[in-house]
């Protein structure tokens, strides 16, 4: 293999004029983290609502929840990204569509919405599984004490369900973080996009993607450490 290794490349100025290649990658990393966190807020809250809908006795609520989940988890993420970015502004009324297209950081907002809605369908299934894994008597006990349905979910079912599904939710969070890389296709300058441009500018493909890989792994390790601490913090004495 005829390849000129150059690990010093990271300290060389990037062709963008400001900063080094390392700065370029780190700016990509910060977009990755921002996108992951913002989309997770949507994914977690919307996913919880959808998951709860699917456990309610109401047939209408079930239908809404099921329709949502099946729609968003059965269309490839890449396709969803394109739909949000290229198709949605065209089907909106002209002025709104134009405004959306001219939005500064449009790829960021689009990626946040797209990932949020996509991951919500997956979170919803975890939440549903968590709630359904609880003994039926738990909901009955809450109801028998005079709790409304909302209070039963708020004080009894969800606190227990979240504890049970914390490990798979952590995986879901990690997936969401890695899925941000799909947003490079709509122009978000996140970590993978930055590694690619570094490779194109400098031809140091191995260095660029080694650095990106290490950064992804490091950030995921931080997430895992955080999740482990959280699991320990919410663990119930003498219980699950």
């Amino acid at each position: 293999m005829n390849y000129n290794w150059n690990w010093g490349i990271f300290l060389e100025p990037s062709p963008e004029g400001v900063g080094t290649y390392a700065d370029m990658l780190l700016s990509g990393l910060s977009w990755t983290v921002a996108t992951a966190l913002c989309s997770w807020v949507i994914a977690f809250s919307l996913g919880s609502v959808i998951g709860v809908l699917r456990t309610l006795p109401s047939k209408a609520a079930n239908a809404v929840g099921t329709a949502y989940v099946e729609l968003f988890r059965n269309v490839p993420l890449l396709v969803q990204m394109f739909l949000w970015y290229f198709v949605l502004p065209e089907v909106l009324p002209t002025e709104i569509g134009t405004a959306v297209k001219q939005l500064p950081d449009a790829p960021f907002y689009t990626a946040v919405l797209c990932l949020g809605f996509f991951t919500a369908s997956r979170v919803a299934e975890q939440v549903r599984a968590g709630i359904q894994s609880l003994p039926r008597g738990q909901a009955m006990a809450g109801t028998a004490l005079g709790f409304t349905t909302a209070q039963t979910y708020r004080h009894v079912l969800l606190p227990n369900a979240y504890r049970i599904i914390l490990p798979p939710l952590t995986s879901e969070f990690l997936n969401n973080l890695k899925n941000t890389s799909v947003a490079l296709t709509i122009g978000l300058l996140e970590l993978t996009a930055r590694a690619r441009s570094m490779q194109e500018f400098s031809f140091q493909v191995f260095e660029a993607f080694t650095a990106a890989t290490i950064l992804y792994v490091l950030i995921n390790l931080v997430v895992i450490a955080g999740a482990t601490l959280l699991e320990r913090y919410v663990a119930v004495p003498g219980g699950r």
Partner: peptide
């Protein structure tokens, strides 16, 4: 019904204390 149930105490076979 919630108001009515609040006035009726119920004890279950499997206790159903809230584990958390």
């Amino acid at each position: 019904l919630p108001k009515l149930r609040a006035r009726v105490g119920m004890v279950f076979q499997h206790f159903e204390l809230f584990p958390h």
